[in-house]
Nucleic acid binder design. Structure first.
Lengths: 195, 195
DNA sequence: GCTTGATTACACCGGTCTGTGTAATTAAGA
DNA sequence: TCTTAATTACACAGACCGGTGTAATCAAGC
């Protein structure tokens, strides 16, 4: 039950915005009474925090080469962008919506961003780059930048632009990166999904 | 009067969030009646749109070398991040808050993002880089990425990380970029209103 | 002085929101 | 069958919201 509530809250909060979705809406969507929802979560704030904590899932371990894992991140991003149910980074959105209002939300968001940076860094450590910390930070900038750009432009090709930039940064750090896929044309005009 | 309303709405909308600030709050902050506010703007939506349009000011022309202008962008960003009154990109925040609700808001946000990309592109054209369009896009990714990261982490050094990455990208495109911090010119005076 | 337009105070509307109180209903386990 | 816990329906409180109606007040220009 608790999981069903969280599941639904996740979908609605993420797609429509946290402030835009009321507890009545969530309860109605599942088909339960509002009272039941409040039996599982003491307040909407608690539900919001649980929603963000549930989003905070670390990437599963992979045995692929570090470079492939790093560049693959942007392929996954592009696939996510193409999905209708993609609407930016839930943590950035939450901080933008709730701001200084809820300090806990910000802490969760910071933890998430840092965990992704560390994921990059650990992969870079295995590649013997000169400055794994700084390069990891730069990669997160490309990730978050492409997410923000796609949020407003609805343009999944932002992920490819980020991937190209990541390739250049890795190459500059002495990492051997393969050729760009045949399907990737840097000169392509920026596509638009919606008019 | 209209300008005073916009001024106050700008500050409150940006710092506390659009949905979090009511028209009563704005009127009370200025010390005018709510009726006066509604004499200047037909609805809150109109006020929101005017707020975003007011934020949409293009960067003034500069006669500095293109590379300095490009890298200087990140210096201005860093100074902005350090300010207490910085809370991310108003356009990204607005889209995150209002989402699909208001199509006009999204259009303004898209226009702004594109105008900054074109600003980069026009500078890159003067540098004869192989792919000005793509590189301009990549630079915007670094800008938006550092803004998003600073929004959640409150870490102005993100701008420097972005600048470093930009240097690498420019250098890889055959542009001669000076040593780190060789382009520091303290009195670059461009309105820091945007993003 | 008079007219005109902006601004004011203030009440009020309908709606939505989070959260609670309560009593009835269900279902499962001992 | 009795007990216990979860869930239900439903009303309601209290607050805030966007927006309007109205009549009075103010200020400036003719």
């Amino acid at each position: 039950m608790k999981e069903r509530i969280l599941e639904t809250a996740d979908r609605l909060f993420y797609l429509r915005g946290i402030r835009a979705v009321g507890v009545d809406t969530i309860a109605a969507e599942i088909g339960i009474s509002k009272r039941t929802l409040y039996n599982h979560f003491p307040s909407k704030d608690a539900l919001i925090r649980a929603y963000l904590e549930r989003r905070f899932t670390r990437a599963p371990a992979s045995d692929k080469p570090p470079v492939e894992q790093i560049l693959g991140t942007f392929d996954r991003l592009e696939r996510g962008f193409a999905s209708k149910s993609f609407r930016g980074c839930p943590f950035v959105n939450a901080v933008a919506e709730l701001g200084a209002e809820d300090r806990t939300v910000k802490k969760i968001a910071i933890a998430f961003k840092e965990s992704r940076r560390l994921w990059f860094r650990d992969l870079l450590l295995r590649l013997d780059v000169p400055d794994p910390e700084g390069l990891a930070t730069q990669l997160t900038l490309l990730v978050d930048g492409s997410i923000a750009q796609d949020l407003v432009r609805d343009d999944p090709s932002m992920a490819r632009a980020a991937k190209e930039a990541a390739r250049v940064l890795l190459s500059h750090a002495g990492v051997g990166v393969g050729e760009a896929d045949a399907s990737e044309h840097p000169h392509v005009e920026i596509g638009k999904r919606n008019s």
